[in-house]
Design a binder for these strands. Structure first.
Lengths: 196, 196
DNA sequence: CTAAAAACATACTGAGTAGTATGTTTTGTT
DNA sequence: AACAAAACATACTACTCAGTATGTTTTTAG
């Protein structure tokens, strides 16, 4: 039962890469098979259909990656403002997994699938809610520690910060240049400092 | 030369609606023909191919709409902070053309097309640059009038604000609920006021 | 009114597409 | 080794897609 798991995972990995760069709809199963050297029989042995594979990508590829890069960095007792800024800086400037020209995988999938596939929307919403909760908790902790103003609304700030991230990712796609990230990050720092 | 223009425009209008709700790739020409009651011969008389139609949508549908809702509201001598906030409020809460479940048409197209179609990317970039310039001008004017701090970087703020808008539009898709807009707008107001 | 061009209509093509039917090979269990 | 189930392979189907070939109708200019 080990080789089969490897086959399944290799499909998910490669499919994710193709979908990240090309989009879900425009990535055909034949595309995936061609790059994985897996045959159609194997594919449909592991996945009931394309959508099941898509959901598996969210749950088995995106979710762990999200946890590592969006959640774990906040689990720390440093200054919350710095934690949030550093996470963003890392995501935008240092993470070699996320490419400027292809944006954010979760945002891409949301954009493409959420309006007409409830199951995708729900899976992605769960993903994003984890980030949401972590950010809120980080800010609330900062308020308790006296490092963030008491009249700051953690939920509002979180939506504001998350939106900015998704938006600048889309912007990067358009310009295909990290310079927009630099401007964004500078102003993000100003904004975050205004919460002190 | 009047009826033909009407046919062309009706194709663009209906195609835009379909693309806005379903996406560019997943909107087939046959879909467009079915809803417009135009035949394939007529379609290909007016447009060389699907991509030319897509570009026409950006230039002839999106651009005027963008000018009306994103540019013109800033051409005013009111307080720049209020101008920007009111524009955003109108876009998110009052504009009945833009639906929460379908996000921002320009952002959708950027997400879907920018990485692998240069002409779309360029056309969309022009569109967005106009908004960019208007926002920068608005902020610069505010600085001159003394209504915005002198050490505010207009370009940075503009990227930050635009990103937030695109991001919260994507968020709205996920939750399919304007309540995220409300949180976002409250925090946007806080942020904008911090620029005074 | 007439002829030519503009505007549209119909039927088709060839290349994908997701998914299936029906196999063969590999693996684990006894 | 033997057998069954798991894991994979191949060939196909029914359908959709963008685009074309070849018409017919409508408009416009003289």
């Amino acid at each position: 039962m080990k080789k089969a798991e490897a086959t399944r995972f290799s499909i998910l990995r490669k499919a994710f890469e193709l979908i990240y760069t090309k989009g879900y709809q425009t990535t055909s199963i034949d595309d995936i098979l061609a790059t994985t050297k897996v045959t159609k029989g194997a594919f449909y042995y592991h996945f009931k259909n394309k959508d099941e594979m898509g959901l598996a990508i969210i749950n088995e590829i995106l979710k762990p990656n999200f946890a590592k890069n969006f959640i774990d960095p906040l689990k720390n007792d440093q200054d919350p403002i710095e934690l949030i800024y550093n996470m963003m800086y890392h995501l935008l400037m240092e993470n070699e997994f996320l490419k400027v020209e292809y944006g954010c995988p979760a945002a891409n999938l949301t954009q493409e699938m959420a309006p007409w596939n409830e199951r995708f929307a729900k899976a992605l919403d769960e993903l994003v809610n984890q980030w949401n909760k972590s950010l809120i908790a980080t800010i609330e902790k900062g308020k308790k520690d006296g490092r963030i103003r008491q009249n700051v609304d953690a939920k509002q700030v979180t939506f504001f910060v998350m939106s900015g991230y998704w938006g600048i990712r889309n912007f990067g796609k358009l310009e295909n240049n990290r310079s927009v990230y630099v401007s964004y990050l500078k102003e993000l720092k100003n904004y975050l400092n205004s919460l002190r």
